Simulated assay, not measured.
Amino acid sequence: MPDAAHHPVTTVQLNHTVVHARDRRLSAEFLTVILGLEIGAPFGPFLPVELGNGVTLDYYEQHDEPIQPQHYAFLVPDERFDDMIARLEAVGVTYYADPHHAEPGRINHLFSGRGAYFDDPDGHNMEIMTRPYVRP
C-alpha cells in the first residue's frame, strides 16, 4: 500500500452523497428551484441533483428515524447570487448571514464575496457563497 505522506493521491474526487429527506421530490425540487438546477431521472431509491462539478446529491427518503441535519455549501456564480436570494424571498424562506442563523435577512461578505445560509425542508443547513473559503 502506498504511503500517503510521500505519494499524495490527487485524483480522488467526491462523486455523490446521499441527502436524507422526508419527501425526496419536495426537497430536491426546493433546492433546484433556489439554485436554478434540474432534477435528474430517479436512480433506484434516489432522486439525483447534479451539480456543475459532476458531484450528485442523491435525495433518499427516510421515514424510520429522525433526519440528522447536515451542512451543504454551494459555490455559486456571483452573477446568479441575487437571483437565488430573490427566489428564497419569493418562497418565504428566511436566509441568514451566519451559519447559526442569528442574522436573518442579511448576507455575509466573507473572502470578498457574498454568502448566505438557509434551511431546506428537512432542516439541512444550506449555504450559498460566491467565493470559496481561503484555507491555511
Score class of each variant (00 low, 15 high):
residue 2 P to A: 12
residue 128 I to Q: 03
residue 108 N to E: 06
residue 32 T to M: 03
residue 51 L to K: 03
residue 125 N to S: 12
residue 124 H to P: 06
residue 40 G to L: 03
residue 55 V to A: 13
residue 112 S to M: 07
residue 43 F to S: 15
residue 47 L to Q: 04
residue 104 P to E: 07
residue 133 Y to W: 11
residue 45 P to T: 14
residue 2 P to M: 10
residue 67 I to L: 12
residue 131 R to H: 09
residue 65 E to S: 13
residue 30 F to P: 03
residue 84 M to Q: 10
residue 113 G to A: 04
residue 4 A to R: 10
residue 120 D to Y: 11
residue 82 D to T: 05
residue 45 P to H: 06
residue 40 G to A: 06
residue 69 P to H: 00
residue 52 G to K: 07
residue 4 A to T: 14
residue 95 Y to D: 02
residue 128 I to M: 08
residue 119 D to F: 01
residue 9 V to W: 08
residue 32 T to P: 03
residue 1 M to T: 15
residue 50 E to Y: 08
residue 6 H to T: 15
residue 120 D to V: 01
residue 22 R to N: 07
residue 100 H to C: 06
residue 112 S to A: 11
residue 90 A to M: 05
residue 128 I to T: 00
residue 71 H to G: 15
residue 99 P to S: 00
residue 23 D to Q: 09
residue 7 H to P: 04
residue 51 L to P: 13
residue 95 Y to W: 07
residue 74 F to N: 09
residue 120 D to R: 01
residue 107 I to A: 14
residue 103 E to C: 14
residue 6 H to E: 14
residue 57 L to H: 03
residue 134 V to T: 09
residue 1 M to C: 15
residue 95 Y to E: 00
residue 118 F to P: 02
residue 18 V to C: 07
residue 12 V to S: 14
residue 20 H to P: 05
residue 58 D to F: 01
residue 54 G to F: 08
residue 57 L to D: 05
residue 63 H to F: 09
residue 124 H to N: 15
residue 133 Y to N: 01
residue 66 P to K: 11
residue 7 H to M: 09
residue 51 L to V: 14
residue 82 D to R: 04
residue 12 V to W: 10
residue 83 D to W: 01
residue 55 V to N: 09
residue 96 Y to E: 01
residue 101 H to D: 06
residue 49 V to W: 00
residue 99 P to R: 00
residue 121 P to Q: 09
residue 67 I to V: 14
residue 86 A to V: 01
residue 119 D to N: 13
residue 5 A to F: 10
residue 91 V to G: 10
residue 127 E to G: 02
residue 123 G to P: 05
residue 130 T to V: 04
residue 34 I to M: 06
residue 61 E to C: 04
residue 59 Y to V: 07
residue 91 V to S: 08
residue 84 M to H: 04
residue 100 H to F: 02
residue 36 G to H: 09
residue 3 D to R: 12
residue 32 T to R: 09
residue 74 F to S: 06
residue 79 E to M: 08
residue 77 P to T: 02
residue 73 A to P: 00
residue 115 G to W: 01
residue 58 D to G: 11
residue 116 A to Y: 00
residue 10 T to Q: 15
residue 59 Y to F: 13
residue 111 F to N: 06
residue 45 P to S: 14
residue 92 G to D: 01
residue 58 D to H: 04
residue 71 H to Y: 03
